[in-house]
Structures are given as C-alpha cells and as structure tokens.
Design a protein around this nucleic acid. Structure first.
Lengths: 327, 327
DNA sequence: ATGAAAGCGCTAACAC
DNA sequence: GTGTTAGCGCTTTCAT
C-alpha cells in the first residue's frame, strides 16, 4: 500500500538503484533532470522513506534512546532539553522511553527495547542499574552513559552533578548561618543519596558538629517525603534542613506552615535542584542549583565519545528560606 | 558482529526457520528439546533479536509514538503515565518524541520521524498542527489522535478536557463568590485558549456581567505570564482571576505577594490544571482539575479504535485561593 | 550517469 | 517437527 522506491522506479522508468541514490542525496551520481523527475514523482506519490529498511541494510541508526526513571520530582525537563539540543546539533534523533519509578522489570524491559532497536547509544537517566542491566548493556557493545547518577565506577560512563559537593555546600551554608542542628531529608539509599549523605557528613565533621543518626531522614525525593519529615525534625530541635530536592523542600515548607512554624524564622531550608519550584514557593527556596541543561549536553558528548565533564558543577543560589541564627 | 539467527542455526545444526520459530515462540511448531537447545545457544551467544528486521518483514510495529509540545507548564507527566499504562496493557510500546515549544519546524520533523518509522499510531500532545502537518498525517494512513487539544473537527480524533466547561466552571465559581470583575490570564490564541475564552465569556454573560476586553490577558500558560499580568489587573480593579494553568496562577500569586496584595483577601485565583503545584503554592490554589491520567488512557483507546471519551470531565477542587466578596 | 544483483536479519508460506 | 525458499524496502558494489 505504502509506496516504495520500486513504485517510483516503475513510474519514472529508472531503476530502484537510481531512485535510491537521489533519495539518499548521493551527490554527483545523478543528473539534475533525473533528480527533478524522481523527486516530483516521489512527492506525487507522497512517498516516505522506510527508515526501518534503511537502518537494516546500513546496520546503524542515528538514534539515541533516553531511558528515564520517573522520579517523583521534577528535574528531568532541563536535562532532556540539553540532550535534545546537543543531539540535534550532531544530527542524532532522540527517542525517550519511560521506565516507571524504581521498577526493575520495566527498567530492564526498556533497556532490552532500546538494544533490540539497535540504537546508536543509550542514555540512562536517574536509573540505578542492577547487575543484570549492567551486564546486558556491557555485552551489547552499544555505547551507554548514565545521567544524573554517578555510579562511582571509572569504567562506566556517567554525567551528573557532584552530589557530594552539593550536599556539602548546602550544609556549609546553613552552618555559616549559625545552624548547629541540621537535618538531611528525602535522600534515597542508592548512589545519589549516599553521595549526598557523605557530603553532608563531611561538612558537619569539618565544622566539628556531632551529627545524630536521626537527623538524616531518607525518602524518595518527593513532596510527601518532605511533608512527612516535619514532625520528627521538630522533636529533634532541628533548625536547618538540607532537602534532597525542591519537591521535598516544598513539602517540608508546607508542613511547617500548617503548624505555624515560621520559615525561615524557626526553620531554615536549603533545597537541592533549583528548579522553578524554588521561586513558586513562598518564601522562595534557597537552593544548591544543578545545571540540568549542561548535564544533558555533556551526556550526549560523553555518549558519542567526545570528552565530557563527568561532574557538572553546582551553584548556591540564595533566596529567602534561610535565616541566621545568633550564636 | 552481533549474532543473528544464522549463527544460532549454524551452531545448533537447525535451519534458520526453526530457530526463528522458537525465538518467536510459535507454540507447537517445535519440540521441547529443540527449544531447549536453541534457547541455550542463543543465551550463550547473548543473542538479541533485531526488531528492525522483524518489523520490516511483518510490515507492522507494536509501537506508538507520542509527539509532545513542551509547553512551559507541567501537566504532561500525568498524561504520559496514562498513555504508558494503557499501552502496556494492550501490548504496545511507546516512544516519546519532543517537538520543542510551538516550533513548527521541529514539530513537522517529529511527525515525519514517526511516520518513517512506520509506528502503529501517533499521539500528538498539546500540538497545534498546521495544514501541512495535518495533510502529512492524513495521507500517511497511520492512525493518529490529538491529546489535550480539541481541534473542534469531528473528523479528526482527539481527547482532551472540556476547555469550555473548565473555564465556565472556574468563572462561575468566582461569580458565586461575589466577584464581578474577573480576569482570564495566560491563555493562548489557539484552540485551547479560544475554547476557554468562550467558556469564560459564556459564564459572564449568563450572570449578566459585562466583561471588558482588557480583562483577558493572553500568554503562554507560563509562570512568567501570570507574573506579568498582575499590574494590569490591579489597575483594572480585578478581584478574581481564572488562570490558564497552575504555573500562571503561581506567577500571579507571587507578583501579588511581592506587592503585598493579600491573596485571597484582595485577589482571588482559580487555576486550571490541578497539579501538585496547587498544593505547593501558599495559600494552596483552588483549581479546576483535569484528569490527566484518564486523558492519557482514553487517547490510546481512541488511537486503537476503541470507543473513547473525547471530552474528559473536569472537577473543581476547592483549596484556599478564593475569598467571598460581600455584595 | 545508470542498471543488475546481492544482500541486511528476519518471517512465512510451502514442502516433506 | 523441520528445511527450503522467497521476500520486506532499502543500499551498495560492480558493471556498462
């Protein structure tokens, strides 16, 4: 039903080889009038190239797959923008596959899907691979790169913010504003969470603060995680909190408001992310801001073998959610 | 390099046909030991089926493409969840293609990409097609459906909220709370915006309120659009605003706070969307809430020819951003 | 500048 | 049950 080069060949009298050449723009292998004639007929037939067939014979695609873990927070758009932008520049198409949230099954499935389509590269966003995933990827010989996850393994490509630094900076900022009982809320138990925990602990140590285990309240980076943690922090006498994400900070902030606890007067918060949520919140949230677009750009650089920054720097952006405590 | 069924055939002594059969699980066409042997070798070789080749010969794919226009607001996740959910149920894979924001070129390109991959269906999310797009889609004979856009043309499939009703409900709610000068902020000049405008105007008319042209402030559904509109509304003496999106409402709210205009005391707002942003905002935003997940589900139903609701109902969710005006 | 022919990796009759 | 064979729509030598 759909027209093929065969149809065009029949209609123009040329062979399929010639038709293929002009359609593939193999310059100099055909005359102008030939081109004109073939293009005209192609248009008349509303011909569309069958990319599948082309990729099959060429044994390569110009497609990169982005597999994304749908975290209950909102940072991904910036990264995807960056990926899209850079990919377009170097002539790559990008398709996005969702893998649910920490859904081992879906995640594995998405990787298999990408592999079976013989994409030219795979970007894994916020994905924590299990050994099966990693093995699958490795033996596929397809280039891949983790994004916004730092597996702390030199041999596997990844691009992310420096989580250690991010948490360190946030913690240090609170300390420099006089806080001495500082919580860390909403982090997970995987790589990102562990790295942020390490940065947080290092900052406490460097400033001779003896942290308590309960100061660290794990979660899933969600709004709810922040909301839930409020009471515990009140009981612990926490005055400053490093939130694992903007969403977590917003949840904590909402809980504080509902309990009439002044923010930042009685509770200060620094969030990690720096998305628009920080401005929407009232008072606006001071944040350690990630450069998401840059992470996206670097990740495709990394994927295609160009030198790329593994750790994209973060910056602290002061807004209105931190108060100074008199000492 | 990558192993093919040929390699497996050679290694097992069977023909490629037999290998193909067991790999495609054509039950009853092979014996158990044959299956066992072939599967084992396949595993040893870490064989992956080449989906491209399969799709080429079968002339069909189990993939639907979702082309999304990246609106500067945040409603899309719920819809994608719904799409993914329903697609998985009926054995379809989904790939997502980004088309920028109102970028004619990228948009057209994305459609062509989807078409050239011979997907089994195309979902166009928040996409305003130009005639070229529509023609492309129509003559491709590929099934397609617009999502979150209602083209108001019976002949083209679409699933969205009832924009007219949404705006009517929001406006009526403000009127019932005593408001008589009511703004509409952030809508675009395309289908969605026009339909909401009509609903807004109808509500005013039904309650004998004589609206003014300046009460309607167009925009792009963004936070900034809401922020920018505040001063104009103050000068106009607007007391209640229907915001085109949660983001727009949040922007307006922020501007009000910065000018020390009490919300909802001096300015009431109803937003259209009802995402988590409504809860994050302080005070929480009363909204006309869209059922995004349902929209996603219905859109794949629509795509595959199952009966589907074209207009998914909205509901008004009261929160804290509307005050009653004494009359 | 153009055509003939050989595949790319797979499935699907059609034999046996 | 399994093998043989003919493609799917395209690109790419190798001729001419």
């Amino acid at each position: 039903m759909k027209p093929t080069i065969k149809d065009i060949a029949a209609k123009t009298g040329f062979s399929i080889a010639t038709v293929s050449r002009v359609l593939a723009k193999k310059q100099g292998t055909y005359s102008d009038k030939t081109q004109e004639r073939i293009l005209k007929v192609a248009k008349d037939l509303s011909y569309r190239k069958n990319t599948l067939a082309m990729e099959l014979v060429k044994k390569k695609t110009d497609v990169i797959a982005v597999i994304v873990n749908v975290t209950p927070t909102n940072f991904s758009n910036g990264i995807i923008d960056g990926i899209q932008q850079r990919a377009t520049e170097i002539g790559l198409q990008v398709i996005i596959l969702y893998a649910g949230n920490r859904n081992t099954e879906l995640q594995h499935q998405a990787i298999v899907t990408a592999l079976e389509r013989t994409v030219s590269g795979i970007l894994l966003m916020a994905i924590e691979p299990d050994k099966a995933d990693l093995q699958l990827l490795t033996e596929s010989k397809t280039s891949f790169c983790f994004v916004s996850i730092n597996l702390a393994d030199e041999r596997v490509k990844s691009v992310s913010s420096d989580n250690y630094q991010a948490a360190y900076l946030a913690t240090e900022y609170l300390i420099s504003h006089g806080h001495r009982t500082i919580g860390l809320a909403g982090i997970d138990h995987y790589h990102t969470g562990s790295q942020r925990l390490a940065g947080y602990q290092a900052a406490l140590k460097d400033y001779s603060i003896h942290g308590q285990a309960e100061w660290v309240q794990p979660g899933d980076y969600s709004y709810q995680a922040g909301y839930n943690v409020f009471n515990a922090y009140q009981e612990l006498g926490i005055t400053g909190v490093v939130a694992a994400s903007d969403m977590t900070a917003a949840g904590l902030q909402k809980a504080a408001q509902e309990s009439n606890v002044k923010l930042p007067g009685a509770l200060s918060v620094v969030s990690i992310d720096g998305t628009l949520i920080c401005d929407i919140a009232t008072p606006a949230l001071t944040s350690v801001t990630q450069n998401f677009v840059q992470i996206g750009i670097e990740s495709v650089n990394c994927l295609v073998g160009k030198s790329a920054t593994r750790l994209v720097p973060v910056t602290l952006v002061e807004r209105e959610s931190v108060a100074t405590i008199k000492v």
